[in-house]
């Protein structure tokens, strides 16, 4: 993996995010500095309320820092991240209820302007890779939690992103299903050559990834295997 700045996917520089103001203000993320490079496999660990999800949302460009700056040198500006080079897997159900599985998987590509036929073909291909092609005409309400999360990963795969962010993807799943989902997620990242950050408080999940970031009271600590500039 190269350390050149053109390969740098994300750069967070002394980033902070505060909710509210005055005495009731809550500092969710405090003075976080980090970078994400192509091929990174990062487990973002920490107890509930430590600021993991907020940091992930900042990296995804879903939220703005109140202090500091975030940039995506190799991915483009904030508005071109999604759909495109960055994809997210949410903890809660994130499939659109009125669309069937293929349509859900094809949606990010359609949002990008890809024509319907190409997007549908890519969706079918992604589903097939995850052995989900038999679910293609199902509606989200007809899927189990594990199936829904695997379809969400297929959606990520179909978009061929360079950075995948997963926010506690196994949080609502039983242990066995959770392991399977993590397997699929890592396989997808490997296949795409994408960087992967998984936000989790499950050590078993964290142990599957070589790099580890810890969050405690909004403060980020970069641990083993981290690439610090």
């Amino acid at each position: 993996m190269s350390n050149s700045s053109t390969d740098l996917l994300v750069r967070c520089d002394r980033v902070a995010r505060t909710y509210g103001s005055g005495p009731s203000a809550v500092v969710a993320v405090h003075d976080a500095t980090c970078q994400v490079h192509p091929g990174d496999r990062i487990a973002l660990m920490g107890p509930s309320g430590s600021g993991k999800t907020t940091l992930l949302h900042l990296i995804a460009g879903l939220d703005d820092p109140t202090v500091g700056s975030i940039s995506w040198p190799a991915l483009g500006d904030r508005h071109s991240l999604r759909p495109g080079p960055l994809a997210i897997v949410f903890q809660s159900p994130s499939l659109l209820p009125p669309l069937d599985v293929v349509e859900n998987v094809a949606l990010p590509m359609l949002l990008l302007g890809t024509d319907r036929k190409t997007a549908t073909n890519a969706a079918h291909e992604a589903l097939a890779r995850l052995d989900l092609d038999d679910l293609s005409s199902k509606l989200p309400e007809e899927l189990s939690g594990g199936q829904a999360q695997r379809v969400a990963i297929a959606r990520v795969l179909a978009g061929r992103p360079r950075l995948i962010l997963a926010d506690e993807p196994t949080g609502q799943l039983d242990h066995a299903t959770g392991i399977r989902v993590i397997d699929v997620l890592i396989e997808a990242a490997d296949e795409l050559g994408a960087a992967l950050i998984i936000n989790t408080h499950d050590p078993l999940v964290a142990n599957r990834l070589p790099q580890r970031w810890d969050m405690a009271n909004g403060r980020l600590t970069i641990l083993g295997g981290a690439k610090i500039c």
Binding site: I88, F90, L96, L107, L111, L112
Partner: peptide, 15 residues
């Protein structure tokens, strides 16, 4: 929630 999810996936306001 559907619209918020679509927005999180990158749907623009026009879409």
């Amino acid at each position: 929630r559907t619209f918020a999810t679509a927005a999180a996936l990158g749907a623009k306001r026009r879409q």
